[in-house]
Amino acid sequence: MGLKEPLLSSRIHILRAEYKLTQKDLADKVSVSRQTIISIEKGNYTPSLLLAYKIAKTFGKPIEEVFIFED
């Protein structure tokens, strides 16, 4: 969890488009601010495992399909 740690990229914006969800909709579903979703999408903020799990669950996908770990 932290700012500017480019180890984890996400496919949230792709999945959001697929599921027709706005950043605000997703933020409300996982009880965080819209700014947090924006930061995760931009790769500026690495979410906690719990939040990553909640986001993945919202899309009905396993965590590794939403977040991609880059070596």
Binding site: M1, G2, L3, A27, S31, V32, S33, Q35, T36, S39, Y45, P47, S48, L51
Partner: peptide, 14 residues
């Protein structure tokens, strides 16, 4: 939401 948001908490701690 603002007071429980994990990014806000992280920034505040940092």
């Amino acid at each position: 939401i603002a007071s429980n948001d994990e990014r806000n908490i992280y920034i505040s701690k940092e």
